[in-house]
Design a protein around this nucleic acid. Structure first.
Length: 212
DNA sequence: ATCCCGAGGG
DNA sequence: CCCTCTGGAT
């Protein structure tokens, strides 16, 4: 995808969705961090289902610690990887209380030091909570970046670096959401909906055509 | 490279 | 049945 195609790509996605947002449900920065931590290899629908049970009981670091690993597990069992996630959420909540005054830290270093929080999760919090122009490369963005030719790469980090270099500044803050939503609803993993795709004309991917 | 790990879709 | 879902730690 050349620079002109990239420009048209984002203009089209922006016009279709001027105010993109996360589909995870949260009402504080801590809830956002918790929801993103729980979202690894899980759909946001399943995460929202669990946080609707968990947050009314515990939506602060102190309440998560008080609830304990077993207590958190009881509310999030319907999400994949729930044992690791419960353990990490409680450990993260404890560190927030002991080292950050109960607040979610603003720096990438401090975020990535939290158990269960890696580069992708830190990027989401930095972008959604504080509007930083990060690009969290999840399964959708990795696929869309490679398939479209916007940002090809073997690893999520390679894709992220190309995205940061290629996305025009005017789109930097919201690009993450446009790419996610495009991957989730149009550029799907199994059967990309190229017929219904608004940016097919600036995409490198050639869908398999049914034999003439 | 491997493990974790439930729900939903095809 | 198999694949996928806003990954991270070992």
């Amino acid at each position: 995808m050349n620079a002109d195609a990239i420009q048209r790509f984002f203009v089209t996605l922006r016009d279709a969705n001027p105010q993109p947002a996360s589909e995870l449900e949260y009402s504080s920065v801590f809830e956002l961090l918790a929801a993103v931590l729980l979202s690894a290899q899980a759909t946001d629908v399943s995460v929202n289902k669990a946080t609707r049970r968990l947050f009314p009981i515990a939506n602060t670091p102190a309440r998560i610690v008080a609830l304990g690993v077993e207590g958190v597990e009881a509310h999030i069992r319907t999400i994949g990887l729930f044992r690791n996630k419960a353990k990490n959420l409680v450990a993260t909540a404890r560190i927030l209380l002991e080292q950050h005054g109960g607040q979610v830290p603003r720096s990438r270093e401090a975020l990535e030091a939290l158990p269960g929080v890696g580069r992708k999760t830190a990027n989401v919090v930095l972008n959604v909570a504080w509007g930083e122009p990060t690009c969290a490369v999840d399964t959708h963005i990795f696929r869309v970046g490679n398939r479209t030719g916007l940002a090809p790469g073997r690893t999520p980090y390679e894709v992220e670096m190309k995205l940061l270099a290629r996305i025009p500044a005017e789109f930097a803050k919201d690009a993450h959401h446009w790419l996610i939503l495009h991957g989730r609803y149009v550029c799907q993993a199994r059967k990309p909906r190229c017929q219904a795709c608004a940016v097919a004309d600036c995409c490198d991917f050639q869908p398999k055509t049914t034999a003439s």
